[in-house]
Design a binder for these strands. Structure first.
Length: 578
DNA sequence: TCTGCATGCAGC
DNA sequence: ACGCTGCATGCAGA
């Protein structure tokens, strides 16, 4: 059963649909204050909630202590269906742009408590799209019908249905992870910063260790006024010291040797720590011992998640020590080993490559098959195949890989050729790549014009290859993102079931947060998840995560025999994983 | 003074 | 001439 919900002024409009998709009852209104109770009551029937934007609806339910099992996020689904090659003929994807194509409405973050920093979180969202008073429940219902119709008219209904369900589950998970937050010990974080940088100082001033390094750099470069934070000044000073560098990138500096480079590299490392995850970041993002990352599901063209603010997807290993489980709780951390190569093997039904990864590290398996000499070579060559390397070590190793795994390599080559011609490629479940820009198309067309110079032709060729590398990678990265969504959705479902059988079940105290007593996802990083769980349940959680990986593989690739191996660890601190 | 772009680096 | 990002910072031009 589907229940379509929409807002109009101060009321919620609700349409319950039966199994055929037609209204089971007339649309009715509910005062906004009664909405959460309504959802709580209806949830027992396991409906799929249909709403415009999960981030605009779910946080308030979570604050009311309510979780929902499943939803259909119209905005995320709209983007997928409008672009998918599997629904290219549908009226939906041929219709012009409207409000469903707009960026997500500004939404309020889901934070459980009304702390100073996030006090605004409790205020209702007044910026939503129906400010003109239009009954957007109608809009949502119409849009839902259009999406259903596009889905059913597709030759790939099954894959797309799975993709929309997974994408929507991802939206629920993102909201739940933001609400629950990642346990974060500010005392440990502060001690770590103090030991690396020196005691805390006011914002905008240099901590002692940075100041000492700056002094050392100035003296070794014989430049008493040098500002080590200025790339231009540093570059000039290095050149004057006789170093043939063309940038101040760490990897380039490491290729040279000069006494000043030691403190300079150390300065850069620490200065990065301070500006990206220093005390200011801690004060901004840690609330009551929890980091509440602002995930954006579907935020990347390939289907990966993005973040806005907080940098959850760039959380450096340096600070993961501060991620510490609550007393009596623990983390189960799992990451998918060599996910993208395994995805590629399955996409291309390359049995030899799947064999290489069966029950073992896939790169080690490639070495064991005698394809290349070392694990590092196997890895570099695989990455080169998926990213489109043409030169260097990776480029040299590619022919060996192509001989051993022709099907896999042919898939990546074909994806690149499609992109070079300006075409569209599609992931396993049906997310299609964007079309190239007008500029790109113009440059390609112009390269054939009689008045085009050889520079024009070179430029066009270079841009064509660039777009080819993008589409080459899109298929693999995007399909891997789909696997990860299915994996997480399965984990979530199984954890909820585990919870229903235990202390957090039917007799749960509704005044408690839905996550305060039972295992739940707290972090996601492309191919890695973290579950925060009562310590006693960790073995069951591990099993759930492993089984979910197998199930995700089956959902995407059916019976094709590819393993999705995980590295799983039960740890008190995130820093101790892998 | 503000804004947009370039740089550099964190993650996968 | 190897893919996708977010974020902080400095710098140049408006």
């Amino acid at each position: 059963m589907h229940i379509v919900v929409g807002r109009s002024g101060g009321v919620i409009l609700i349409t319950e649909l039966d199994a055929t998709g037609s209204p089971a009852t007339p649309t009715f209104e509910l005062p906004a204050v009664n909405f959460a109770q309504y959802v709580r009551a209806r949830e027992s029937a396991s409906p799929r909630w249909v709403w415009d934007d999960t981030a605009a609806w779910y946080p308030e339910l979570l604050r009311a202590g309510i979780r929902v099992e499943r939803c259909h996020d119209l905005r995320l689904s709209h983007v997928i269906l409008c672009n998918s090659a599997f629904t290219a003929e549908s009226p939906l994807s041929q219709s012009g742009p409207h409000r469903w194509d707009e960026a997500a409405v500004a939404h309020v973050p889901a934070v459980p408590t009304g702390d100073t920093l996030f006090d605004f979180a409790a205020e209702p969202d007044t910026s939503s799209a129906d400010a003109d008073g239009d009954a957007d429940s109608t809009d949502s219902r119409v849009e839902f019908q259009r999406q259903q119709q596009a889905l059913l008219s597709s030759a790939e209904t099954g894959r797309l249905r799975l993709l929309l369900a997974a994408e929507s589950a991802g939206a629920l998970i993102a909201a739940e992870m933001q609400f629950a937050g990642l346990p974060w010990r500010t005392d440990i974080h502060d001690a770590l910063l103090t030991s690396e940088l020196g005691p805390r100082v006011a914002y905008g001033t240099r901590p002692a260790k940075l100041e000492a390094l700056a002094a050392r750099i100035r003296s070794l470069l014989d430049n008493p006024t040098l500002n080590p934070d200025s790339q231009t000044e540093v570059l000039r000073a290095l050149k004057r010291a006789g170093l043939p560098v063309r940038s101040t990138r760490a990897w380039e500096l490491k290729e040279h040797s000069h006494p000043a480079l030691v403190p300079l590299l150390e300065y850069k490392k620490l200065s990065r720590l301070l500006s990206a995850n220093g005390w200011y970041w801690m004060d901004t993002w840690i609330v009551n011992g929890r980091f509440h990352p602002d995930y954006v599901p579907g935020g990347v063209v390939t289907g990966r998640w993005a973040t806005k603010g907080g940098g959850a997807l760039q959380l450096p290993k340096q600070v993961r020590r501060a991620v510490t489980a609550d007393d009596g709780w623990t983390f189960v951390v799992a990451d998918a080993s060599q996910l993208e190569p395994r995805i590629l093997a399955a996409l291309s039904t390359d049995l030899a490559m799947a064999d290489a990864g069966r029950g073992t590290d896939l790169y080690a398996g490639i070495v064991a098959s005698g394809v290349v000499e070392t694990r590092d070579h196997a890895k570099v060559a695989m990455l080169g195949a998926m990213y489109g390397a043409t030169s260097g070590e990776s480029g040299r190793l590619l022919p060996k890989l192509a001989r051993a795994y022709p099907r896999a390599l042919e898939l990546t080559e074909a994806a690149a050729r499609v992109g070079e011609r300006g075409g569209v490629v599609t992931t396993r479940l049906g997310r299609s790549s964007p079309r190239p820009s007008e500029d790109w198309l113009r440059a390609q067309a112009y390269a054939y014009a009689p008045e085009a110079s050889s520079a024009d032709e070179r430029m066009a060729r270079s841009q064509a290859r660039e777009w080819g590398r993008f589409t080459r990678n899109f298929v693999v990265q995007g399909s891997a993102a789909e696997w990860a969504l299915c994996w997480m959705a399965q984990i979530r479902k199984a954890l909820q079931k585990l919870d229903a059988g235990g202390a957090g079940g039917a007799d749960r105290d509704p005044s408690q947060s839905p996550f305060s007593q039972s295992p739940h996802l707290v972090f996601f990083l492309h191919d890695e998840v973290v579950v925060h769980t009562p310590a006693a349940l960790a073995p069951q959680v591990q099993q759930i995560i492993v089984d979910a990986a197998t199930e995700a593989g089956r959902l995407l690739f059916g019976e094709f025999p590819v393993d999705f191996l995980l590295t799983v660890a039960t740890v008190e601190s995130y820093a101790d994983a892998k």
